[in-house]
Computed example of a mutant assay.
Amino acid sequence: MNNREISEVMDITSNLPEECIANIISKTSPPDACRMSLVSRTFSSAATSNLVWEALLPPDHQQIISESVSSSSSLSMPSKKDLYFSLCDNPILIGNGNRSFTIHKWSGKKSYMLGARELVVIWGDASQYWNWSPLADSPLVPKSRFSVVAHLVEVCWLHVWGHIETKILSPNTRYGAYLIYTIGDQFKGLEKPVKLSVRFLDEIRCDFINAYLLSRTFMDDAPEEEGARFPRDREDMWMEIEMGEFFNHDQVDRVVEMQLRETEVLNWKSGLVIHGIEVRPKDLR
């Protein structure tokens, strides 16, 4: 909302009780609720009420919180607004601790991250190929929200994938899937392109895109391949690369598959450290 729109709302609602104003604000968005709290004392009280922020939280947030294995003290807040922003900024581990949940700050839409242990990693159980290390054993790896990360020791056949159910995501939302990883100090064979894909499992077609796990600054001769993807650095010190996107029309029970593979060049590769795959809303800010 701009200043003129807020002024018009004030004129319309000047004689309404606070609860009615709160009900109106609850139909807007988190950014609008925050802006409208600056309008007047009445609006501030209404815009920070539990009625507003209960409506802006995901409808099933209490059920998700009940599955949390994170510290419960940070989730037992009397203020729904405080709970909202806590869930935005502090991912909670759910289920067996190999998934995390957050909400998108600007929309209230749900985001999930599948930790490395939640993914299928070919040869992942063989220590000569992959090493699963707790954080205490990985001083050079950025901080992880999960207990372990997957270190690639050496493989020629790289294939990692994960699944997520659309029924747990926010409906009518476009999602992107992102591989979250970093590159160790001693790596090799990662300059070759890999294939990434995102698809619904009930669809036969699977379109792969070419991507490079190394950023351009790590490559002596960065390719100018049209359409190829490169990673970007995250604020949490990890790297991410978009694997693909999908639109979740409703909460029908479909399954999305997200793949990383390099099974064509078959060169020996090492030094990749996988944190997980994040599924989050796109283009909502």
Rank of each mutant, 00 (worst) to 15 (best):
M1R: 02
N2A: 09
R4W: 15
V9F: 15
V9R: 07
M10Q: 04
T13E: 15
T13Q: 06
N23W: 11
I24R: 01
I25K: 08
T28Q: 09
T28G: 10
T28C: 12
P30V: 11
P31K: 03
D32L: 14
D32A: 14
C34K: 01
C34R: 04
S37K: 10
L38G: 03
V39N: 15
F43L: 01
S44Y: 15
S49M: 07
S49F: 06
V52A: 02
E54T: 06
E54Q: 09
A55K: 11
I64Q: 00
I65Q: 06
I65L: 11
S71K: 08
L75C: 08
L75K: 03
S76H: 14
K80T: 10
K81Y: 11
D82P: 06
F85P: 00
C88E: 10
D89E: 15
N96R: 08
G97R: 11
F101D: 01
I103E: 06
W106Y: 10
G108I: 01
K110D: 01
K110S: 05
L114I: 13
G115K: 08
E118D: 11
V120I: 15
I122H: 14
G124A: 05
D125P: 03
S127H: 11
N131H: 09
D137K: 11
S138T: 13
P139T: 08
P142Y: 05
R145A: 01
R145N: 09
E154Y: 14
C156K: 00
H159R: 07
V160Y: 12
E165V: 06
K167L: 00
I168N: 07
I168M: 05
P171S: 02
P171T: 05
T173E: 14
R174E: 13
Y175M: 03
I180S: 07
Q186W: 07
K188P: 00
G189A: 06
K192F: 04
V194Y: 11
K195E: 13
L196K: 09
L196I: 03
F200Q: 15
L201F: 08
D202R: 05
I204F: 10
N210W: 12
Y212A: 00
S215P: 09
S215D: 14
F218I: 00
F218Y: 08
D221R: 05
E226I: 10
P231M: 02
P231C: 07
D233P: 05
R234L: 12
R234S: 04
E235C: 12
D236M: 11
M239I: 02
M243C: 09
D253Q: 05
R254I: 07
E257P: 02
E257A: 02
R261W: 06
R261T: 07
V265W: 14
W268D: 07
G271K: 10
V273W: 14
G276W: 09
G276F: 00
G276C: 04
R285E: 10
R285M: 06
R285C: 13
